[in-house]
């Protein structure tokens, strides 16, 4: 991480943002540590030629793995900056805080110095910090949890299933950003709905070729398949031991329980257990008809 003499920040990280809000959340972490506005932070990321190492985007771990590293880097920059400011202001470093692009005395707010006026930064033009994320606390297991609720309507004449409502409740510990959190869980629900209702790979048993390798026959949900009412609730449990930002992951738990919740709702509605996904009219109709025959 680099703090430049104009007060702007560059973060160089391997972490990718595949639409999950990595850049937004990382900017928040850095802004909080360095007291600079979000628009002063540039995230330079996910380029194997120029950026630092990070693990892949997967395992619901970008926030809990990469944000503590960003925070550690920011703390290193902050420590250097405050030391430089303390020398200039002739105050003990413990007395100083960063806010709004300024170094301020916590005892006497009148005593302050713009970040860009700290001589160390002016002299060097840049302050560099490097942060890493070490192993988890020994003996501590860190898991996310989620529960999904589904409400369905089943047409028992045709096997058609309409998902009328979905609700996700998720424990990701600290939610770093409400909007990106909710959007990601909403997206997870739709992916889970696809598994539960429409998406299936079909292989021809004679040749091994895939029958439905196109976007028509492989059916991802459309807007008409997604319920009008789809709500996301964060449980907001506090976990101060999981890492230095107190946040666990988001992605996978938001898509794991959905299909099972839909299957349970179908069972609750019509008393039939569908052991395979997705629950399509062909599959459900066959089971409903078989039950009808048994009487």
């Amino acid at each position: 991480m680099k703090l430049f003499s104009d007060g702007s920040v560059n973060v160089n990280t391997g972490a990718a943002d595949i639409g999950t809000g990595t850049k937004t959340v990382m900017s928040q972490v850095v802004a909080e540590e360095l007291g600079v506005p979000l628009e002063k932070i540039q995230i330079e990321h996910a380029d194997t030629g120029t950026t630092q190492y990070s693990g892949p985007s997967g395992g619901s771990k970008t926030v809990p793995s990469d944000m503590p590293a960003a925070r550690a880097a920011a703390i290193e920059v902050r420590t250097k900056l405050l030391k430089g400011a303390a020398d200039e202001m002739k105050l003990p470093v413990e007395e100083l805080a960063l806010a709004g692009g300024e170094v301020v005395s916590t005892k006497d707010p009148a005593k302050k110095l713009a970040v860009t006026a700290v001589p160390l930064l002016q002299r060097q033009q840049v302050l560099v910090g490097v942060g890493t994320r070490g192993p988890n606390v020994e003996g501590k297991v860190i898991s996310m949890f989620a529960t999904h609720f589904a409400e369905v309507e089943v047409n028992t004449r045709t096997g058609e299933v309409t998902v009328t409502r979905l609700l996700a409740a998720q424990d990701s510990a600290r939610v770093m950003n409400r909007l990106t959190f909710e959007c990601q869980v909403q997206g997870g629900l739709v992916m889970g709905l696809g598994l539960g209702r429409t998406e299936e790979r079909v292989l021809d048993r004679q040749t091994g070729k895939m029958c439905n390798a196109n976007w028509h026959d492989y059916k991802i949900p459309t807007a008409l398949d997604v319920p009008a009412e789809q709500k996301v609730h964060s449980v907001d449990l506090v976990d101060t031991e999981c890492n230095t930002v107190g946040a666990k992951g988001v992605g996978e738990p938001s898509t794991i329980p959905t299909a099972a919740a839909i299957a349970n709702a179908v069972h609750d509605a019509v008393g039939v257990r569908v052991p395979d996904s997705p629950i399509t009219p062909p599959r459900l109709m066959a089971l409903l008809a078989a039950r009808g025959k048994k009487g």
Partner: peptide, 16 residues
């Protein structure tokens, strides 16, 4: 082998 569901499905759709 895999489309006998269509019999009850079509019967149901016609009745409905």
């Amino acid at each position: 082998s895999g489309n006998d569901y269509k019999v009850p499905l079509v019967r149901g759709a016609v009745e409905e």
